[in-house]
Amino acid sequence: MARPIQEINAGSMADIAFLLLIFFLVTTTMDVDSGITRKLPPIQEKQQNDEKIKERNVYVVSINYHNQVAVEGELMPVYKICDGVKEFIKNPNNDPNLSEKKEKDIPLIGKMMVSKGVVSLQNDNGTSYSKYIEVQNELVRAFNELRDEFAMKQWGKKYKDLSKEQQDAVKKIYPMTISEAEPRNVGGK
């Protein structure tokens, strides 16, 4: 008498497969690429731009091959750069040493004084990349904080919570003017 072959219970197979599936879903979290976005100046226009910008409108940040940071020729610790840049761009007392301001029409807001200041970051060939990124980060932070402050004052919200039009307006008031200078040796070797 042939007994019918007992079927193996496949019910738990699904659980095993789900477990595998979830394992893969969790472990393959593709590391999101993120970083500091910058725009390089095009090659030809470089010279013309430089002539137009006045001395007082350029905030020179340089890093030498000892990874020391200098602002306008004077040594400065990295954490002070952010405030330095903000002061330079805002120029609340119209100090003649800080950036010039010009009236501009901004959509949504109307006439505003917009700084003509440019931050120029110079580095030496021997500067370490991590220091360079650290300083870049501080510069970007300065501009982000300026934008946040303005957004807070105007709309009571953070910059990233504003609508697209509002963000564009704030961008016009505080454009991220960080220029990557032509390579040159700062401090010599």
């Binding site: 993120s34 970083g35 976005t37 725009k39 390089l40 580095n123 060939n125 360079y132």
Partner: peptide, 21 residues
């Protein structure tokens, strides 16, 4: 890095991103 940036400018690839954590 500076050399690479110069090459990128020659190649007209001006949007760059310094990848960081």
């Amino acid at each position: 890095i500076t050399d690479i940036k110069q090459e990128l400018r020659k190649a007209q690839a001006l949007k760059i991103n310094y990848s960081t954590r």
